[in-house]
C-alpha cells in the first residue's frame, strides 16, 4: 500500500493524492482486459508512460448499421478514477445519435456521478466505482447496435434514425467504409 502514502494537501495536491489509487486500478483493469477482452474490442494504454490515456478499437457489432467497421477511439481517465468515469471520444467521424460530431460518446455509464446536469437518461445504468472499462466497452458496443435517440448527442443523426432509416443506414455505411479505407 505504499502508493497511499501521499499526505493530504489541501491546495494543488488535490489531484496528485488520488492518482496512486487510480493508477493501481487501471493497471489491474488492463491486465484483466488483456486476458478477457469482450468480443470485438481491443483496448490498452496508448503508451507505457501514461496509463491515463487508452487507445481502443471497436468492431461494429454483427447485424448493426456499423457491421464490418473498425472504429478507433480514445479513453481519457481522470486522476480520481474510478470515482469519476473516463471520457471517450471516437477518433474518426461516426454518424450516430449518441456520439457528438466531435466524436465524444454520450451514454449514461460515462456520465459523472450523481445528479445528471444534462438531464439525459434516467433509467439506464450510471457510473459508479464498481463499474469498469469492460462495462463501458460493452455499453458502447450495445450503443452501436441500438442507438438511443431519446438522449441524443447528434440531433441530425437522431432525426434521421427516426424519420429516414434508409438514409441513416447509408450514412452509417459511409462511416464503416471510411474506417476500412474504402
Amino acid at each position: 500500500m505504499s502508493s497511499y502514502k501521499t499526505t493530504y494537501l489541501p491546495v494543488g495536491g488535490y489531484k496528485t493524492a488520488m492518482a496512486g489509487s487510480a493508477l493501481r486500478r487501471l493497471m489491474t483493469e488492463y491486465r484483466e482486459l488483456f486476458n478477457n477482452a469482450p468480443h470485438g474490442v481491443v483496448a490498452g494504454p496508448a503508451s507505457e508512460d501514461n496509463f491515463f490515456e487508452w487507445d481502443v478499437l471497436i468492431q461494429g457489432p454483427e447485424g448493426s448499421p456499423y457491421e464490418f467497421g473498425v472504429f478507433p477511439a480514445r479513453l481519457s481517465f481522470p486522476t480520481d478514477y474510478p470515482l469519476s468515469p473516463p471520457k471517450m471520444r471516437f477518433s474518426v467521424p461516426l454518424f450516430h445519435p449518441n456520439v457528438y460530431t466531435c466524436g465524444k460518446v454520450c451514454i449514461s455509464i460515462l456520465h459523472p456521478p450523481g445528479d445528471d446536469p444534462l438531464g439525459y437518461e434516467h433509467s439506464s445504468e450510471r457510473w459508479s466505482p464498481v463499474q469498469s472499462v469492460e462495462k463501458i466497452l460493452l455499453s458502447v458496443i450495445s450503443m452501436l447496435a441500438e442507438p438511443n435517440p431519446e438522449s441524443g448527442a447528434n440531433v441530425d443523426a437522431c432525426k434521421m434514425w427516426r424519420d429516414n432509416r434508409a438514409q441513416f443506414l447509408k450514412e452509417a455505411d459511409k462511416a464503416v467504409r471510411r474506417t476500412l479505407g474504402l
Binding site: 497511499y4 501521499t6 488535490y14 488520488m18 496512486g20 489509487s21 487510480a22 470515482l83 464498481v130
Partner: peptide, 19 residues
C-alpha cells in the same frame, strides 16, 4: 487521520461501505 484525509484511500473506504 492521514488515511481518512488521503482522497484516494478515504474514498476507497467510502465506496466499500456504500457497497
Amino acid at each position: 487521520m492521514e488515511t481518512f484525509n488521503n482522497d484516494g484511500m478515504s474514498n476507497y473506504l467510502v465506496v466499500y461501505v456504500r457497497l
